[in-house]
């Protein structure tokens, strides 16, 4: 099964969950696919910036992320589900971000 079919299947699954009776249009499928490709490619390009810290780490990370992305794709349906308008989701990610930011700024800066 190729990636395109896989993505279509996942979109149908999500639509089934939200009980929408909309037919799966070409526009929504192609925009989902574009979003998927955009996320993976910009993630990979951004990872090349790790070369400023260590070149070996960059190569390892790019290869690792490439394969992980292939394995867990499609990512976009999952991201969409996580970024919905449910309040509990929003507040969870906000407190998580607060934790990450404080930890990174506090310990990251002290140890660099």
């Amino acid at each position: 099964m190729n990636v395109y079919d896989l993505i279509l299947k996942r979109i149908r699954e999500i639509q089934g969950k939200t009980e929408e009776e909309e037919p799966l249009t070409n526009i929504s499928a192609s925009s989902m696919l574009t979003a998927e490709i955009t996320i993976i490619s910009s993630l990979l390009i951004a990872l090349i910036m790790v070369r400023l810290i260590s070149k070996t780490l960059m190569i390892v990370l790019v290869i690792a992320v490439f394969f992980i992305a292939l394995m867990i794709s499609p990512i976009m349906p999952k991201l969409m589900r996580e970024q919905n308008d449910s309040f509990s989701n929003m507040i969870f990610y906000i407190v998580l971000a607060l934790g990450i930011i404080v930890a990174l700024f506090y310990w990251g800066n002290l140890n660099v």
């Binding site: 925009s31 989902m32 955009t38 930011i101 700024f105 660099v112």
Partner: peptide, 27 residues
């Protein structure tokens, strides 16, 4: 603190990618 600029860039990249891909799939 050079870390502050790195953090701003990382957050901005995240904003770029997440917001624009989310815009693609909205109705």
């Amino acid at each position: 603190l050079s870390f502050s600029k790195m953090a701003i860039i990382a957050i901005s990249l995240l904003a770029l990618v997440l917001s624009i891909t989310m815009a693609l799939v909205q109705t």
